[in-house]
Design a protein around this nucleic acid. Sequence first.
DNA 1: CTGTGTGAAAGTCTTCACAGCG
DNA 2: CGCTGTGAAGACTTTCACACAG
Lengths: 217, 217
Amino acid sequence: MVMTMIKIPKPSIERCCRMYSYLERLQEKGVEKVQSRELGQLLGVPDCTVRKDISFINKEKNIARSYNVQNLKVLIGGYFHFDKARNACVVGLGRIGTALLAYTNFEKYGFSIVAGFEDNINRLELIKTDVNLYPAYQIQDIVKREAIEIALVAVPADAAPGVIGVLVKAGVKEIVNFAPVVVAVPNDVIVKNVDFTQMMREVVAFKEMCVSEDNEG
Amino acid sequence: MVMTMIKIPKPSIERCCRMYSYLERLQEKGVEKVQSRELGQLLGVPDCTVRKDISFINKEKNIARSYNVQNLKVLIGGYFHFDKARNACVVGLGRIGTALLAYTNFEKYGFSIVAGFEDNINRLELIKTDVNLYPAYQIQDIVKREAIEIALVAVPADAAPGVIGVLVKAGVKEIVNFAPVVVAVPNDVIVKNVDFTQMMREVVAFKEMCVSEDNEG
DNA sequence: CTGTGTGAAAGTCTTCACAGCG
DNA sequence: CGCTGTGAAGACTTTCACACAG
């Protein structure tokens, strides 16, 4: 029942995601309180921006001397539904794909990789993992059967549009795309592109332009 | 001799980087002309934004009927110095690190991976690659000897601050950090964080907020 | 006195709208 | 016409600055 769907700025959403990760870490360390200043330092923004971000989400104002780590985490997590576990799959099991399959942090933070897909049947045999692997033509079936919400796409550039098309048809609405191409999708589907060459170029360009910034998602 | 250092917006820089990749691909395909509309479609922005982006860079106005792919690529590449080849290294040769070592696109687009570093000597022996590998304590020496400008950091979270500190001391000013921590650096150093869990959360959050956007770097 | 919450001001980025060229 | 280039308008984000709480 989301009724207070006040427009919250996109950069603000990104910062909240990062804040959430940081809060998890603080919680693991047993830290109980945190201030907007500290969070701001981490995010590379002033404290007032952090407070503003939180104010978009927090609709009950009890002005205190600092934030309770646990409460703030629950607030953000509840708002974006990070509290709910989600199933994901990896498509394309080359080096990047298998690295993702083995990436242990996902489980820890509420994402379960429940399937891996690969076109090349020979390669399927060779991969050692606990995750169930399937040939690519089974994407539709397995996505539905396993209630997969998120796909990590790590296929070659020329295969990406086809694969993403199939995923979208299967009902996947959240995609992280490691192939260096931009693929058009319906606008209820969110794609985040992670192109390594692109990233190196951006780092170079920012350096050339002297656009420093404390950090960046 | 950059004298016209007019402030160019950061999002604009990012779009230029993506535009550049796209222009490379068009050039490979032998396409000669491209219009702002088409570039805009790719970037998920209107054509006027593309033209504006280009106008920040382009200081000679010859109004024509479309852009020449080759010229535009040279213009952007020249401005951000993408034309110059750059040396990079990978630090941390776990799964992600070795995937990066093997990532063939870098060479193709002007980045040479000239070194890999790893703490665990046993692992060093096992990795098959053409890239020269070194134990981590040699970072300083090799960075200088090989004139390494860029580092891809793929070590565990708790090792990242230390490693990044060493890299910075060695003179590396451009870092892509795959460890899920934000590390403070001097502000002439650019760090781009690539945190997979973070990305999945952002995709989820955007979806929950119905913040669609045609695509995203 | 330290730190949060927030309306309003300032700043940044995007889009409009139209001149000008082919 | 169709498309580029761009000042100016508009939209969006961030930061300020101060009320308020402990």
